[in-house]
Design a protein around this nucleic acid. Structure first.
Lengths: 244, 244
DNA sequence: CGTTACATTGAAGCTTATCAAGTGCAGTGG
DNA sequence: CCACTGCACTTGATAAGCTTCAATGTAACG
């Protein structure tokens, strides 16, 4: 369980409520077996009945759905401190798949332990539900982006959101962040073709707004990007440490 | 609180777990003041800090987000038995707005009562979390539709989903259902223009699949529509009473 | 009976997809 | 060490799908 205070989930939940020693201990006990997963190999498969969820401690994961015609829609990315599969523990089958984008570390959380926590540490439970609500708000914002923003704004918004999320756990700032995604991941997430993703990235780069290259996102003109994307981070509910 | 057993929410939750007398009583007590809202007048406004959520007992509501440029994305529709604003009770501000599509009836649920219920009736709490998980799964499927389905399949999928959801609370079947939406609602929900919605509806009608007219959806060729939409209702997690 | 809200249709044009070809680079095995 | 392979990225040409603009139709309502 190592140093709980510096664990990314603890860090994230602490922006919502200050947790007591006791609550931190309950949270620590929630962390089960620590497992590693290889990049590219699915952890959970669509349609599979899954009894546990995970807390991601290192690396990036994406959750996605495959269509019968083979096209893929990435629903969300998970970064350190995020839950994996929290939504589907209560559903009879997982409605989506998880793919580690790089080699990752995650600890298992048993559904029974989770429900126990709800009865025994209500404040912690509230914090976990807050995180889940925030996750859903991100999916909603993603939906809005795909439905109503053009490709440029969509990309800009996405890059800004990931920056804000990563900065919350200390993995990014207003300069930029490390990002292991390929242009294919971006395409599957944003509902675009990989070819078009390439063109959009070029435009943003040539406009001097942002550079996506060699696994790193560099913000060249942060405010300009915010304006293009009409990015309002209210939905992330992290009024404190936004991008510094 | 009238006849709880026939209340649409009770009916919905019962497809997940059989609730005991005691749990039904707690659920009944959760229902606060019954209120009515006029069609078209917003109930909750984006950015507003909201302390309560609602249980919808009659009528249709949509939840949506407005973009700075004025375009609107409808995130989901709520029908009788659905919660309203459950996701945002824990967030500091509501991240979206609610508009009643017709005159509706809804009962208020206080956040404090809700959290109490979690501690006092764990099985009921699980059922409520199940409903919330299912709502999120619907948003995810909506995201997939907008990102990866063409306009025809998107429309077909939407009409089928609403049919399945309504049949769960006894308001629809394999023949069709009453639907108070305008083509503008459909456009805002599906990420299309109203003009294109009109054309798509015409195509589906002329192909002998569905008719959307005068506030009523009529399935003319249910299986054909399922095939076109590649509709797999697994995500709705309502294995029992799907469309009859 | 004019007004308003919703539905319908045509025409033109833009955004994005698809197809096709080619570059650059890291890893692998001879 | 070098050819070979595979993957990610890049670019151009063409075309589809959908939007926008504009006009018209239709039913309900005060």
């Amino acid at each position: 369980m190592n140093n709980v205070a510096n664990d990314p989930l603890t860090r994230k939940l602490s922006t919502f409520v200050a947790l007591s020693e006791v609550e931190l201990a309950v949270l620590a006990r929630l962390h089960g077996r620590c497992r590693t997963f290889k990049a590219g190999r699915d952890m959970v498969h669509q349609g599979q009945a899954e009894r546990a969820s995970y807390i991601l401690s290192a690396g990036w994961v994406c959750s996605y759905k495959i269509q019968p015609d083979g096209t893929r829609q990435i629903v969300d990315f998970q970064v350190p401190g995020d839950f994996l599969g929290l939504r589907s523990v209560l559903l009879r089958t997982s409605d989506h798949s998880f793919e580690p984008i790089v080699d990752i570390k995650a600890t298992e959380v048993l559904t029974s332990d989770l429900l126990d926590t709800f009865a025994r540490a209500p404040r912690l439970a509230t914090a976990i539900l807050w995180a889940a609500s925030r996750d859903e708000a991100m999916v909603v914002e993603h939906l809005v982006g795909i439905g109503r923003r053009d490709a440029d704004a969509r990309m800009a918004h996405f890059l800004l959101e990931m920056g804000a999320r990563l900065s919350l756990v200390g993995l990014g700032d207003k300069q930029g962040y490390d990002c292991p995604l390929t242009q294919y991941h971006l395409a599957d997430a944003l509902g675009l073709s990989a070819v078009h993703v390439n063109r959009v990235l070029r435009q943003l780069r040539e406009a001097g707004l942002v550079t996506f290259r060699d696994g790193h996102v560099t913000f060249e003109d942060f405010d300009g990007l915010v304006k293009l994307a009409e990015f309002d981070p209210a939905y992330l509910d992290q009024s404190g440490p936004l991008l510094k």
